[in-house]
């Protein structure tokens, strides 16, 4: 329900760990803290996927987390954007030959923005979020 453009919501993100090594988690939290501070633009992590516009997925999707990732993805209201943070979510990264992977992430859910790096720098994550925001605005424009 978009009244005018100035009433638009800020971008809220939900973070999902699909079996990551914690490196990307730490960099995502570091991105939110005062040195980089995207919260001044209203960008923050929320506790429920039902409040989120953006799904940040880290990790290579281990077998046990695949159904949970799908459930979280389905709970996010449209329009939504999925951002894959880190090399292992993009291609499996250093875990490419593991027997316990159902990933990479785009085998499980559609991904809109890829942020490479192991882990990506906070500047890289912010750049990815800006790209996600642009895509989200385009998707909102397409809604009836």
């Amino acid at each position: 329900m978009n009244i005018t453009k100035s009433f638009n919501r800020s971008l809220w993100a939900f973070h999902f760990n699909s079996g990551s090594c914690n490196g990307c988690e730490i960099e995502i939290v570091a991105t939110l803290t005062p040195r980089y501070d995207p919260e001044r633009f209203g960008i923050k992590l929320v506790g429920s996927p039902k409040h989120a516009d953006l799904l940040l997925v880290t990790g290579p999707v281990v077998k046990k987390m695949r159904p949970r990732l799908l459930r979280v993805y389905e709970q996010i209201p449209d329009p939504k954007v999925v951002m894959c943070v880190g090399a292992c979510g993009i291609s499996g990264g250093p875990f490419y030959d593991s027997y316990n992977l159902d990933g990479p992430i785009d085998d499980v859910i559609p991904v809109d923005v890829y942020v490479p790096g192991c882990p990506p720098r906070p500047e890289g994550i912010i750049f990815g979020v800006v790209r996600a925001l642009q895509k989200l605005e385009r998707l909102q424009g397409e809604l009836p």
Binding site: N17, G19, C21, G59, P60, V62, F95, S98, L101
Partner: peptide
């Protein structure tokens, strides 16, 4: 626990 198992030891032995 067990939801973040990535089989690192198994991969390391290869």
């Amino acid at each position: 626990p067990g939801q973040a198992h990535r089989a690192i030891e198994w991969m390391g032995m290869r």
